[in-house]
Computed example of a mutant assay.
Amino acid sequence: MSPPPIRRSNHMARILLFDAVPPAWFDALAQFLRAHQPEGLPLELAQRADADPAKDQELLAGAHVLLVGLLGPHAAVGEDALRGADELRLVQKLGSRAAGIDLAAARALGIPVSLIPAPAHVACAEHALLLILALAKKLIPAHQRVVRRPLREAGPAPRPASASAYAYNWAAIQGIALVAGKTIGLVGIGDIAIELARRARALGMTLLYCDKNPLPKDEERELGLARRELDDLLRQADFVSLHVALTPDTANLLNADRLALMKPTAFLINTARGGLVDEAALANALRDARLAGAALDAWAVEPTPRDNPLLKLDGVIATPHIAAGTLSRNALFEAVLPNILAALRGEPVAGSLTPDLAPRPAVPIEPSQPKQEPPAPATPPAEQQPPKATEDRGQTTA
Rank of each mutant, 00 (worst) to 15 (best):
L276M: 08
A324Y: 07
T354S: 08
E373H: 11
L353K: 01
V21M: 12
T396E: 13
L296C: 08
V301K: 14
A105Y: 00
L276W: 06
A260H: 06
L186R: 05
P303K: 06
D249F: 07
A202W: 02
A350W: 10
F333I: 07
R345T: 03
A324E: 13
R149D: 12
G274H: 04
G175W: 11
E222G: 06
L131W: 03
G185C: 08
A376I: 06
V301D: 12
A342Q: 05
P117W: 07
S96E: 14
E366G: 02
V244G: 09
P158Y: 14
P364R: 01
V187P: 04
L90T: 02
G275P: 04
I116H: 06
K212F: 12
K263Q: 14
A165V: 15
L230F: 11
F333Q: 05
P117C: 10
H64S: 09
P119H: 10
G351K: 08
Q57A: 14
Q57K: 15
P38A: 03
P22G: 11
I15V: 14
D218M: 06
T183H: 08
P141C: 09
V349E: 02
A128V: 00
S328E: 13
A157E: 13
L45V: 05
L94N: 06
G275N: 06
T354D: 07
I101T: 00
R149S: 15
L71W: 10
L259C: 11
L341G: 00
I116W: 05
F267W: 13
A105K: 00
E383C: 09
A200F: 03
E220A: 09
T183W: 08
I173K: 06
G100R: 04
G40P: 02
E79A: 13
P119Q: 12
G190K: 06
A272L: 04
L344C: 02
L311N: 10
D356N: 08
K55W: 07
R306Q: 15
P112M: 01
L67Q: 04
Y166W: 14
A63D: 00
T183M: 08
L129K: 01
I173H: 07
D102Y: 03
L207M: 07
L41N: 01
A24Q: 13
T250I: 05
N339V: 07
P156G: 12
H36K: 12
R360K: 03
G224P: 00
Q372C: 08
L70N: 10
L139E: 11
G190P: 00
Y166R: 13
A350R: 15
V179P: 02
V21R: 13
T390N: 11
E229W: 09
R199L: 03
L29Y: 06
P5F: 00
D50V: 01
I116A: 05
A136G: 08
A358S: 14
L282R: 09
N308S: 14
R97K: 13
F18I: 03
L17W: 00
R34Y: 11
G181Y: 03
I116S: 07
T304Q: 11
A24V: 15
I6K: 11
L109Y: 04
D314N: 14
A283S: 14
T396Q: 10
H121S: 15
A300P: 01
N339I: 09
A136L: 05
P248V: 11
S162W: 09
S352T: 14
A342Y: 00
P5R: 01
P73H: 13
P374M: 13
I111R: 02
S164I: 09
E195L: 10
D314Q: 15
L178H: 13
R107D: 07
P160R: 10
P375K: 00
L82I: 00
R393S: 11
D232C: 10
